[in-house]
Design a protein around this nucleic acid. Structure first.
Lengths: 235, 235
DNA sequence: ATAAAAAAGCATGCAAGCATGTTTTTTTGT
DNA sequence: ACAAAAAAACATGCTTGCATGCTTTTTTAT
């Protein structure tokens, strides 16, 4: 999808909730009949895009490839998404939603349990969504139009990451600086490990020890452990 | 340089040391007369490539762009490098050499001083070389030809990283596992911070605290500190 | 309720733009 | 004058967006 010239990225709210209300006042909001199929096709295209980005990289993901992956003709694809950019925009939003949903779900599941949270987020990073998002994030560094979409989402995620952490560890709010540090450390180190793993910059055998070390570090940063930050507290 | 089809990347050792020997057997190895200028032009092209990758990303770095950046015509450029791939190969080797040289220089400068080593490597990551290398590393994930060149170099770097660390901290060789862990932690966390910074995934104000925390962690991992790994030992 | 009309989904084909590598011509330096 | 360097010209392939038809579903009107 990487085109040579700077593109406009015209705004196009693909809001799926904007459906006409039932004229008979039915109990459920009108399913939209056939436009339901349209939504499915769009979802298929977005999924195909993610797979292509993961498998071939964002730079090599081109429109015929996505159409083939989705089992559609290129013309049909451009019927649902005015341009390649529109598809990418929808894909970014989808990835962001998935990331938020998964994170929220994981953190509600294991409250206050550092080990589970670390392992859960680590599992998240194994899914194709992270790879695709990372590809897009790297591409956004040199693509102003992409950055305009991605950077706000990045900020939103980090902010919600912090907020959720704060309400999961109430005793931590006394020291917001250390909470921020612990959360940033977790996010950056785990994502760093995954990126290094993808680019062959680290030996696989070191992943588990690094995750263990991260757990200990986060535990040590909790206020309950006192300012000495003694590690290996419960090991 | 990202072409659509899989390219051959035909082997072509662009070894700059492979210069024709003097036919007169001069005292010094013959400077190559005018072909010395050729080497300078090649270096200029490689530098231009790095700048283009940093500024526009690897995917958008195309041959006319590099030629313009180097102040040469595209024809002249292809005179020095048979193809775009050849240029990329030379660029990768150059980046690898720089990385090794800088790392070696830095580690010889401050022996046994954790803080200086951390700050030195952090400075390395600020230079354009790291950004370019990271771009290539990400691209290599979906480009077998690139991976074939990059992965061995990644392994070589990690290995030398470990080896040099071992001879810088002799007391650490007793516990090679913790040495490996400390070195991997340093490399991955710092590179992770830098990548997160480039992609807007972290607030800049957290960088210094994270580096401070890394220092403490490495110090705590040294054998002298005992197995408890008490942190903030000397703060 | 049924037939006509409208709209949406889908597929194929086409012209333009751009990047690559090759070949040919001009310039430069010894 | 000769060879290397630099520039220009050329041919090919790929991707993109747009336009054109065909089929299917939904709506509308009698």
């Amino acid at each position: 999808m990487a085109t040579q010239a700077k593109r406009a990225m015209s705004a196009q709210s693909s809001n799926p909730l904007a459906e006409p209300v039932s004229k008979h006042g039915a109990a459920k909001s009108e399913p939209g009949r056939q436009s339901l199929k349209s939504a499915a096709t769009r979802a298929r295209l977005v999924d195909a895009t993610i797979r292509c980005i993961v498998q071939h990289g964002y730079a090599n993901t081109v429109t015929p490839m996505v159409a083939a992956e989705a089992g559609l003709s290129r013309g049909a694809m451009l019927h649902h998404f005015i341009s390649g950019d529109a598809l990418i925009r929808a894909t970014i939003v989808e990835l962001h939603d998935r990331r938020l949903k998964a994170f929220r779900r994981a953190s509600q599941a294991n409250v206050g349990d550092v080990r589970s949270m670390v392992r859960d987020y680590w599992q998240q990073l194994q899914k194709p969504g992270f790879i695709a998002f990372q590809e897009l994030a790297m591409a956004a560094r040199a693509d102003a139009a992409l950055a305009e979409i991605l950077l706000p989402l990045q900020a939103e995620f980090t902010q919600k990451f912090q907020a959720l952490a704060g309400q999961l560890y109430p005793e931590w709010v006394q020291e917001p600086e250390r909470l921020r540090l612990a959360m940033a450390l977790s996010q950056i180190l785990m994502e760093g490990i995954q990126i290094a793993s993808l680019t062959g910059a680290v030996d696989k055998s070191l992943i588990d020890p690094l995750l263990d070390f991260l757990e200990m570090s986060v535990v040590a940063l909790r206020p309950g452990q006192g300012p000495e930050m003694t590690m290996k507290a419960e090991q």
